[in-house]
């Protein structure tokens, strides 16, 4: 309720410009802006450089976007700012190393690692989140617990595996030539997996009964409870899905990047949150699109400034989007009425 009133106030005070723009559906508006920007860059820097930066933007965006899908589910359904999500990605990657070391072939090790991470995510629900929810913990307590859990996960991994750089040994140097443009083979794979995961999660949420229940629960928890939905079941499924997706993206990241240590989750974390918020919390399409928008803007910015400003560009974009598009790209219309 509070959210709605506050949003309304924000809307009411928003500038004339943004209310005029708000008449368009936001994804269409965004697409239009991106196309205009791309055309400008093509004119300014020539098609090859502009398009290569675009390809690179899609690659960079797919890493964060895919990682953010699991995060947005937990944030949307459970309203939990899971600061340990980045470390779940790390856990997935290192479970793969563990199972491969135990003798499983790599693809099987990856699959086992995803299942193990999903189980771990469910375990955190049972051991940490459920008791906190029952005790009606405030948002700061939840936040603190998430930081604590993140530390425990990351440093347990480091305790056993060390902090030295690891690799999964995939060939990261092959690339696909599209005319004068280049796209790494594994990067293309990451992009395809990212889009597939987004579509699958989106379809599950839209068409399956559990997906519908999850959305109902996300929209109004109290209403979902009184209408007889098994809320604990929904929460469990959300955690399993989030853990599985985290491991999937962590493993894909580790494979396609080729070099990592237990810190990669925490360094990715802020980008993951940015993608989630930009896309609209709780929306899997939004998470990936949010990631892509950040990726594109950062890579495009390298045409204009030295690449070392890339992270600052991402954060500046995040602030601008929060100010002018506070519900995110795919934020639900329900909140607006």
């Amino acid at each position: 309720m509070t959210d709605t009133t506050q949003t309304e106030r924000t809307e009411a005070r928003a500038s004339v410009l943004s209310s005029a723009l708000a008449a368009l559906p936001r994804p269409a508006l965004l697409l239009a802006v991106l196309i205009v920007l791309l055309c400008a860059l093509v004119i300014a820097f020539g098609p090859v450089r502009a398009l290569q930066a675009t390809v690179n933007g899609f690659v960079a965006g797919s890493y964060t976007g895919l990682g953010a899908i699991g995060l947005t589910l937990v944030l949307g359904v459970l309203k939990l700012v899971n600061f340990a999500h980045g470390d779940l990605l790390v856990t997935g990657a290192y479970f793969t190393i563990l199972f491969a070391w135990l003798g499983l072939p790599l693809p099987l090790a990856m699959l086992t690692a995803m299942l193990a991470t999903a189980a771990l995510a469910l375990a955190t629900e049972k051991i940490i989140w459920q008791p906190l929810r029952l005790a009606k913990a405030g948002s700061l307590q939840l936040f603190l617990s998430a930081i604590g859990l993140g530390l425990v996960l990351r440093f347990t991994v480091q305790f056993f595996a060390g902090s030295q750089v690891r690799t999964l040994g995939a060939n990261v140097v092959t690339s696909i030539a599209i005319g004068p443009l280049r796209l790494g083979t594994l990067q293309a794979l990451a992009l395809v997996v990212g889009i597939s995961a987004m579509v699958i999660v989106g379809l599950v949420l839209r068409f399956t009964s559990i997906g519908k229940e999850m959305r109902a629960f996300a929209d109004n928890r109290a209403l979902a409870e009184v209408s007889g939905i098994d809320t604990q079941h929904i929460i469990n499924v959300t955690w399993i899905a989030s853990g599985f997706l985290a491991a999937l993206s962590g493993i894909l990241y580790a494979t396609a990047i080729g070099s990592f240590n237990p810190n990669f989750g925490i360094t990715l974390l802020l980008s993951l949150f940015a993608a989630t918020v930009l896309g609209g919390i709780g929306n899997p399409y939004g998470a990936l699109v949010g990631g892509l928008v950040i990726g594109l803007s950062q890579e495009w910015s390298t045409l204009l400034f030295n690449a070392r400003w890339k992270p600052a560009v991402g954060f500046a974009l995040l602030i601008l989007m929060l100010m002018f598009m506070p519900q995110g790209i795919f934020g639900r219309a329900k909140r607006r009425s």
Binding site: Q187, N306, A307, K310, P311
Partner: peptide
């Protein structure tokens, strides 16, 4: 060209492209 890159980024394809170009 002089290209500096932020070590915490996940991909450096744009940076690499600029150097090679």
């Amino acid at each position: 060209s002089t290209i500096s890159f932020d070590p915490q980024q996940e991909s450096f394809d744009s940076e690499a492209g600029q150097a090679v170009d």
